[in-house]
């Protein structure tokens, strides 16, 4: 069975989700639950750190497709960081880099949020 885990921490108002393992049609519902819960709790500034994610299929990307509009409409964003090349490649094939903020690391993503807060 695919192993997958999400750890959540926060730095001030920014929620940081760290993904571990493999994100496929079996494990995507776990991530979806976590993101839905954050939205329910009105936490709309979300960074997803992919450092320890080894694999993603379109079922995993689907979670980001389904919720980004809601989060942005509510004034927040989901920013994606630290992708391995094999994981980035899947996002790239689907044109995600023009639709999502995909950044090198959490620091960049946090700075991006801060510059957006200042606007």
């Amino acid at each position: 069975m695919s192993s997958f885990n999400v750890q959540i921490r926060h730095e001030q108002e920014i929620q940081i989700l760290e993904l571990y393992g493999e994100l496929d049609a079996h494990t995507a519902p776990d991530l979806e639950e976590r993101i839905k819960k954050l939205i329910d709790e009105e936490k709309y500034f979300i960074i997803v750190n992919f450092t320890s994610l080894d694999y993603i299929s379109s079922a995993g990307l689907g979670v980001f497709m389904a919720y980004i509009e809601d989060v942005r409409t509510l004034g927040g964003d989901i920013k994606l960081t630290n992708m391995k090349p094999s994981v980035y490649n899947v996002f790239d094939l689907l044109g995600f880099p023009t639709l999502y903020d995909i950044l090198d690391d959490e620091k960049q993503a946090a700075q991006r949020f801060k510059s957006e807060f200042d606007k």
Partner: peptide
């Protein structure tokens, strides 16, 4: 159209497209 699917909050529907690319 990925951008359109995102606007419609669709959870995927891109598998066949990926298979053909890969």
């Amino acid at each position: 159209d990925v951008s359109e699917r995102i606007k419609q909050r669709k959870k995927g529907g891109v598998g066949v497209f990926l298979i053909r690319k890969l």
